[in-house]
Design a binder for these strands. Structure first.
Length: 527
RNA sequence: GGGCGCGUAGCUCAAUUGGCAGAGCAACUGACUCUUAAUCAGUAGGUUGAAGGUUCGAUUCCUUCCGCGCUCACCA
């Protein structure tokens, strides 16, 4: 028998003894008068004399996170909503029966405490307990109280334990929730309505990525998990929802990394009768508001640097390439250098000669090469909020072209902390142009680009009914949370990030220990 | 997928050149009616991720596998 199975059995025995004392093992409810944070907020300013003069009776529920037992008395800390309140148990005050229960409690148990507030000799606000109510047993031992849980694998696999032990983790997800609330409030206030569009799509469109495939049995049809809601949201603008947004998951069948999780949360919004500049301003305002709502200010810490969300710069993609052109690559490019396949190739060769690692495919469109050039030399400099605008048409199959430069589109992206966090454009609403763009993408697909966009006939039909001019945007919620919480891996802002399945305890394993599986906790702790 | 690194008690970590596998916390027993990383005395807890190899002897060296982290490539 392994140690924690031993602890598990010991605690089950304690649970039986608790039942024998007349307390249900798994009671239905507890009528509390205050939460722990409420007590701390309301009474932290009161002195021992104040509390003696006007006695405050309370009933509080929480999880026991520390126990200090001293003969016929003892102290413990009750944790609720990430905050802790001490309570004092004295045999004289709680009675023999209550004291028996007290001795059967373990770290991690949920209990209710009835009593009155007082201050200990050392001045800590505490509950003088008069009655304990058992609420739920922790059968598995919590991690060590001082170092807590630090093993990253265990933190992600057993996030519930991580959340109990690490208040800063809890804080990250509270901020995430506040951020999403803030976006909803902002877009609602601007007359947008929130909608939900299909997660399972017959054609995975609206972005450049490889999808997950699934299957519906009754219809006997293959479906894809969406890589973006874009094409459905734009169908809704055709239908007369002039301002729509959706906050939900996208799924992309690609590698994992510090900025990438296969499922991630995106805010997408579409606004009729405006263009890329209009939606750019809306997005910037929404993000500035979210930063204020989450942090209370306009500056955040990102590792060694401070990000100033009140100070944005805007550069075209070409300007950014010029501005961050490596010295070793010689004279900075001029506008005409971006115009032809050959001149773009020359730029790539100069940059490579300067020691920059950059792949080059002679068969790909020049616009795609330019985008690669931008990512290779400019992206790493974009730490402060920066809007890069005017993207090549070749990589923007859903954006309107610039009227005077058809090789370039009215598209922009926001970069912060070297990460792309938003992508918006003037939405292409010409069905014939859209068909030609899809056809160009199909050629890319034939060339071997699995991520190139597919033809979507129904989407073109929808555009053919007339889609109003519109600006649209997608905002990467996870990455924005990373920036606002100084989290340097996306896994720290996703409650249950994708991990390999953990090895299960097999029957052979349990037979070897001579134990039945009935009570064996089936997790890594016992394997 | 490539490169680098890690895996020792429930948790956090030690173990000299290859020479008896340890500590703190958690747990168990006992003492203690204002402690707060409570204290004091004692007890128990290990197939050192797995399999194989070298060796008189492997946590340590070698091979393979499993898991995790970092990083590069592709993607947001």
């Amino acid at each position: 028998m392994s140690l924690d199975e031993n602890i598990y059995e010991i605690r089950r025995e304690k649970l039986k003894k608790i039942e024998a004392l007349g307390q249900p093992a798994y009671p239905r409810k507890y009528n509390f008068s205050h939460t722990v944070p409420q007590i701390l907020a309301a009474h932290s300013g009161e002195t021992a004399e104040d509390l003696e003069k006007a006695r405050v009776n309370v009933r509080v529920a929480g999880r026991i996170m520390a126990i200090r037992l001293m003969g016929k008395a003892g102290f413990a800390h009750l944790q609720q909503d990430g905050q802790r309140l001490q309570f004092y148990v004295k045999k004289d005050a709680i009675g023999d029966h209550g004291f028996e229960l007290w001795k059967l409690l373990d770290l991690g148990d949920h209990i209710g405490v009835r009593g009155y507030l007082f201050r200990t000799r050392t001045g800590e606000l505490s509950i003088h307990a008069e009655e304990l109510t058992f609420l739920s047993k922790d059968l598995l031992p919590l991690p060590e109280k001082w170092h807590g849980l630090t093993d990253v694998e265990l933190r992600y696999r057993q996030r519930y334990v991580d959340l109990v032990m690490n208040p800063e983790v809890r804080e990250v997800f509270l901020k995430r929730s506040k951020m999403v609330q803030s976006f909803r409030r902002y877009f609602d206030s601007q007359g947008f309505i929130e909608v939900e569009t299909p997660m399972m799509q017959p054609i995975a469109g609206g972005a450049v990525a490889r999808p997950f495939k699934t299957h519906h049995n009754t219809l006997d049809m293959d479906l894809f998990l969406r890589i973006a809601p874009e094409l459905y949201l734009k169908r809704l603008t055709v239908g007369g929802f002039d301002r729509v947004y959706e906050i939900n998951r996208n799924f992309r069948n690609e590698g994992l990394g510090w900025r990438w999780n296969p499922e991630f949360t995106m805010l997408e919004a579409y606004q009729a009768y405006t263009d890329y500049l209009g939606i750019m301003n809306t997005t910037q305002a929404a993000i500035e508001q979210a930063v204020k709502d989450v942090t209370g200010g306009t500056k955040t810490t990102w590792g060694e640097v401070e990000i100033d969300w009140a100070n944005w710069r805007r550069l075209t993609m070409r300007e950014a390439i010029v501005q961050f052109w490596p010295e070793k690559a010689g004279a900075k490019p001029v506008v005409s250098d971006f115009a032809t396949h050959q001149s773009v190739k020359d730029l790539v060769m100069r940059v490579r000669a300067a020691g920059v690692n950059l792949a080059y495919d002679a068969n790909e469109p020049a616009g795609k090469t330019i985008a690669g050039l931008f990512e290779a030399i400019a992206e790493e400099h974009l730490v402060q909020p920066t809007i890069i605008y005017e993207f090549p048409t070749a990589i923007s199959p859903l954006s309107k072209q610039k009227p005077d430069e058809p090789d370039w589109t009215e598209r922009w992206e926001i970069y912060v902390g070297k990460m792309e966090i938003a992508n918006g454009f003037s939405e292409l609403n010409d069905p014939e142009d859209q068909r030609q763009r899809f056809e160009a993408q199909l050629k890319e697909r034939e060339r071997g680009d699995e991520e190139a966009h597919q033809m979507d006939e129904d989407y073109i039909r929808a555009l053919s009914y007339g889609m109003p001019p519109a600006g649209g945007v997608g905002v990467g919620i996870d990455r924005l949370v990373m920036l606002l919480t100084d989290s340097h891996t996306i896994r720290d802002v996703i409650l249950f990030p994708l991990l390999r399945p953990e090895k299960q305890v097999t029957k052979d394993d349990t037979e070897d220990t001579g134990k039945t599986t009935e009570s064996a906790p089936n997790n890594k702790l016992s394997s």
